[in-house]
Write a protein that binds this DNA or RNA. Structure first.
Length: 289
DNA sequence: CATACGTGGGC
DNA sequence: TGCCCAAGTAT
């Protein structure tokens, strides 16, 4: 089976099995798509759902968000994680208001220039919000192609040129087919071709999967590095930020008292939050979002 | 190119 | 119980 035939199979599977996510609804605005893409960067769909609804109700347009203080965006981000994404989304909203007439750009380069919009997100917004044809290569698609055509259980640790070329070879010719492929290949990776315990028996392209046909050989590449968290600066920053989300403001001492295992680390974390602009110092000396 | 950057659910 | 993972970006 050639690639177009496999693409068609995935499209048919998608039509029958895709999740009815609100940012994929026909009436969802480009801004709604953009907000979803920011929230979905490293955060699971189930946790994004309620936050996305609340965010769009409160800030239905880029201009609405741009009119707010960035600290409000960080507070509304809640516990989605990586709060700098909220900060960048706010900054992107300002750029859209000031440089794009308030409309989310459709041009890839214009999108890339926005804070927090990298290679993947730019292609995703152009594709899902504007129907443009682009290679949309996220962790799901990388894994799907790695298995389906590469015969490897996992893709390389960092996105390679070879992966981009392979993905380009799969991209259908028309805008409509390309955007459908982007959405369906991602969904396949999210629901069937998962990182662990993939449901190959339910896969629409199982006969063509090199990895499956080879007997699902175990990963034999370099050991994949995990993400440490307990005791890290990241966790410490999260604790301090968590307190600030529910308080109007706090003193340094109050904040530092939240992390007693390593006082020096706590001071460093507070300093880095200030330096990142995630936290700001008020005239009275207290700190706030 | 490797590393820092939050958070919580599942096994 | 830890360890792995989740629609990445910026440096």
């Amino acid at each position: 089976m050639d690639r177009p035939a496999l693409v068609a199979r995935v499209a048919a599977w998608y039509a029958a099995h895709a999740r009815p996510l609100p940012w994929r609804a026909p009436d969802c605005t480009p801004w709604g798509v953009m907000v979803s893409e920011f929230m979905l960067q490293q955060t699971p769909v189930v946790r994004v759902l309620p936050a996305w609804e609340a965010w769009l109700s409160r800030w239905p347009t880029p201009a609405a968000l741009a009119a707010e203080e960035p600290g409000e965006a960080v507070r509304a981000w809640g516990r989605l994680g990586y709060p700098r994404r909220a900060q960048r989304l706010h900054a992107a909203a300002i750029a859209i208001r000031d440089e794009h007439g308030g409309a989310v750009p459709a041009d890839l380069e214009a999108l890339r220039s926005l804070p927090g919009v990298g290679e993947y997100t730019a292609a995703a917004i152009a594709s899902f919000a504007h129907g443009r044809r682009h290679v949309v290569l996220d962790t799901n698609v990388r894994r799907v192609l790695s298995r389906l055509e590469g015969g490897q259980q996992y893709p390389p640790a960092t996105l390679t040129r070879g992966e981009r070329e392979r993905a380009a070879a799969w991209l259908p010719e028309s805008d409509a087919d390309a955007t459908a492929w982007a959405a369906s290949s991602m969904e396949l990776g999210a629901l069937i071709c998962t990182a662990d315990a993939p449901r190959c028996d339910a896969c629409p392209v199982q006969e063509a999967c090199v990895w499956l046909v080879a007997g699902r050989p175990a990963w034999d590449g370099p050991p994949r590095v995990g993400q440490a968290y307990a005791g890290t600066d990241r966790q410490c920053r999260g604790v301090l930020l968590g307190a600030l989300r529910t308080a109007d403001a706090a003193s340094d001492d109050t904040l530092l008292a939240l992390w007693t295992s390593d006082p020096a680390q706590a001071r460093r974390a507070l300093a880095s939050l200030l330096a990142d602009g995630l936290v700001r110092r008020r005239p009275d000396g207290s700190v706030t979002l």
